[in-house]
């Protein structure tokens, strides 16, 4: 995966890798929207899912040559119904400026998953019509799926009883 620049196959100017037989495209944040548009023109008209990953404790993950690992990743699953194929976009999002373009205008169905990713990771989506929390309460502090979010615990009652 760490091949030289010429060695990595490209698609719409982005490196493409294979992960267990699944195609993965690695656009930069700037390329992201254009790539999604070109893919939609090629038939990937359904965005099934979007989720975030916080790689805080695993920064050394393998990435193709030329892609700088950042703390966050936004992962989008695209589906082409006509040709029965899938592809995946992995976008690097830096911790200092966690903002990505929203796919909403292209795929309206991505609205809820983007809200979920905002809620869970604090990644903001530019031009999203309603970027509010979706699963957590509105007044919640922090973003629970971040790796540095403190895990709480509740004392188990039967221990207290027998102590």
């Amino acid at each position: 995966m760490d091949g030289a620049a010429e060695g990595t196959p490209k698609m719409h100017g982005c490196p493409v890798t294979q992960s267990h037989g699944q195609e993965v495209i690695h656009p930069t944040r700037e390329q992201y929207l254009d790539v999604a548009k070109s893919l939609a023109d090629e038939g990937y008209t359904m965005a099934l899912d979007l989720c975030g990953v916080d790689y805080l404790q695993h920064m050394s993950r393998p990435l193709p040559y030329g892609i700088v690992p950042e703390r966050f990743e936004v992962v989008v699953q695209l589906l082409d119904i006509g040709n029965r194929r899938r592809t995946r976009l992995r976008v690097q999002v830096p911790e200092s400026d966690p903002v990505v373009a929203s796919l909403f205008d292209l795929h309206p169905g991505i609205e809820a998953p983007e809200r979920e990713t905002y809620d869970m990771f604090g990644i903001e989506f530019d031009d999203h019509p309603d970027l509010t929390r979706i699963l957590m309460p509105e007044d919640w502090d922090g973003h629970p799926l971040r790796k540095d979010f403190g895990l709480g615990s509740i004392p188990v009652q039967f221990k207290e009883v027998h102590a």
Partner: peptide
């Protein structure tokens, strides 16, 4: 092993 995968 290290990696990532999506199955639907």
């Amino acid at each position: 092993p290290e990696g990532e995968v999506y199955v639907g």
